[in-house]
């Protein structure tokens, strides 16, 4: 999309704000401390529009149309209403659906309470042995970050419709996983489990994929997953001095300042 860099004035809830043309509306709202709930948006990824919580109303010629704030690009004269009765009504139902889908997520519970939704009228998912702990809302952030940012493509969506889950191919250990943990870092509901046992990192949510850890040549402590370290080193330009490569940040600092 073209971001021309022009500053334009837009209207959110009858107040006027300055924004850059082409900017994502949700970014503007965040900057201006206007609360629009969302689960699937991440500024470094392409717009996705799946969680539907950021639905707002766009006013055009007196008519309103519902759309997601994470997919609207700012243009001159854009007029938005973020909490009309319709928006709130639908948001509450969506939160009830989330409470049923991810019954063990405290993040969802807290989000729902802010809208006065304390329980759900829908049948809650029965959670037994779920590697995602009954917290996954299928926002796809982990899948997208693994594909778009890390380039590993270790996880993806399995099945479709209400049977969709996120996992590794064929629900088997996946050597493509580098163990970087970016998935867990972006997960809005803290659903992804990672266990460090010392010499191994176990990706509990990703079919128990084990990832080898490497030790610091200096102090002997574990620095991080081997594939991540190799990946990172291959991308450092200029190349890091070989005697520094095998060291943890603390030992490296000592080495350099000695």
């Amino acid at each position: 999309m073209d971001t021309t860099g022009h500053t334009v004035t837009i209207t959110i809830n009858k107040n006027q704000y300055q924004a850059v043309e082409g900017e994502i509306l949700l970014e503007v709202a965040r900057r201006e401390k206007i609360d629009i709930p969302h689960l699937c948006y991440e500024s470094s990824l392409s717009p996705y529009g799946a969680c539907r919580l950021c639905m707002v109303e766009v006013v055009t010629c007196g008519k309103t149309e519902m759309t997601t704030a994470c997919t609207v690009r700012v243009h001159r004269g854009l007029e938005i209403l973020t909490d009309t009765p319709d928006v709130i009504r639908h948001r509450k139902i969506l939160l009830e659906l989330y409470l049923a889908e991810a019954p063990h997520s405290d993040v969802i519970k807290a989000m729902a309470i802010r809208y006065g939704v304390t329980k759900t009228r829908f049948l809650k998912k029965i959670v037994t042995g779920d590697p995602l702990l009954g917290r996954c809302v299928l926002c796809g952030l982990c899948v997208r970050v693994c594909n778009e940012i890390m380039g590993a493509g270790a996880i993806g969506f399995v099945n479709r419709g209400p049977y969709t889950i996120v996992s590794t191919p064929f629900l088997e250990e996946n050597p493509a996983c580098m163990g970087c943990g970016t998935c867990a870092a972006v997960c809005p509901t803290h659903a992804i489990g990672i266990e460090d046992t010392g010499e191994k990192r176990i990706m509990r949510s990703w079919s128990g994929t084990p990832v080898e850890m490497i030790r610091c040549a200096g102090c002997g402590g574990y620095i991080g997953p081997k594939p991540v370290m190799e990946y990172a080193r291959s991308r450092i330009d200029p190349v890091m001095a070989e005697e520094l490569q095998e060291l943890c940040p603390a030992c490296r600092r000592k080495q350099v300042t000695r």
Partner: peptide
């Protein structure tokens, strides 16, 4: 397809 909540759930 299971992408968005209202349709999926």
């Amino acid at each position: 397809c299971g992408k968005c909540l209202p349709c999926r759930e």
